[in-house]
């Protein structure tokens, strides 16, 4: 207990010291790392000191052990849920939304009708559709992909349509004076202007995709997958394994998000929000 408190104070003190050092790029990285390790150590010590049973909260070391000793199982779950379910649904949903928004952008009528509806639907608990899709497409990864696709569709649609409307009036007029065809105007002006919005939508969808794929498995799945693993291991109170799956999910989610961010940086390097980093 006392050691835990001491480490908490120590970590805090180190961060306050770090905060005073400005202009160093390493201090920006070190502060969250120190905070994170402090939290982990604190967790470990508190769980051990207070004798919390492993069925309620296992210490990080036990989770790490479960993670390391179950790598093949976790990998199979990861492939089933993330690669087959989330990723394919993500591509289908975002792709469909993108194509749809290109069509919507051509018509002012559709834009005025679809944007409010899309905004509203994006706020709904679409994840509740999961049991319906499991009923339609069976227990395999197809139903998960369908849930993910529908979940990603509306946020992506709304963002892309907004983005395509982001080009200045002046700039559109300039394209017209150049006698640019609609296709040229789209590729040379509208898409570049929309890309910050598009990437914003893509980023929102990364977390949605993973959540959708995992939750859909609660309603029925083959005997592997991250959602299946969580629900069965919870039933057996093997929480170290559950936390290992969560670790996989967090890693996959963060990596997915990071990859999209990197793509964004490569594609929209000219945008003000990307400068000064």
């Amino acid at each position: 207990m006392i050691a835990a408190l001491a480490i908490w104070v120590g970590g805090w003190w180190a961060n306050v010291r770090l905060a005073r050092i400005t202009g160093n790029r390493w201090s920006g990285l070190a502060a969250p790392v120190i905070f994170g390790t402090t939290l982990l150590v604190l967790w470990e010590l508190l769980v051990r000191a207070l004798n919390v049973p492993g069925a309620i909260l296992p210490p990080p070391s036990a989770i790490g052990l479960a993670f390391a000793s179950n790598l093949p199982t976790l990998w199979a779950d990861f492939v089933q849920t993330f690669v087959k379910g989330a990723l394919s649904g993500y591509i289908i949903g975002c792709g469909a939304a993108f194509l749809m928004s290109l069509a919507v952008d051509r018509s002012d009528f559709l834009k005025r009708g679809l944007l409010p509806v899309g905004n509203f639907v994006a706020a709904l608990p679409i994840i509740g559709m999961a049991p319906v899709f499991v009923m339609w497409f069976g227990f395999g990864w197809q139903s998960k992909a369908a849930v993910v696709a529908v979940m990603c569709f509306f946020p992506m649609l709304v963002n892309t349509v907004q983005g395509l409307a982001a080009a200045d009036r002046m700039q559109s007029d300039l394209m017209r004076t150049y006698a640019a065809s609609p296709l040229q105007a789209l590729t040379k002006l509208k898409l570049p202007a929309a890309s910050p919005f598009i990437f914003n939508g893509l980023k929102i969808c990364t977390t949605l995709a993973l959540i959708g794929a995992i939750v859909a498995e609660f309603f029925g799945s083959p005997t592997l997958g991250m959602g299946f693993r969580i629900s069965t291991q919870v039933g057996r109170l093997a929480l170290d394994m559950v936390w290992a799956v969560i670790l996989v999910a967090a890693l996959a989610g963060s990596t997915f998000y990071g990859v999209v961010t990197l793509l964004e940086r490569a594609a929209t390097f000219w945008h003000p929000s990307q400068r000064g980093r």
Binding site: N15, L18, L39
Partner: peptide
């Protein structure tokens, strides 16, 4: 400097997925 990155990171964990736990 220390909390903000973790607030963001906390959202990459699919919390809904751990809800049953």
């Amino acid at each position: 400097m220390s909390v903000m990155p973790w607030v963001i990171a906390s959202q990459t964990i699919p919390i809904l997925a751990i809800a049953p736990m």
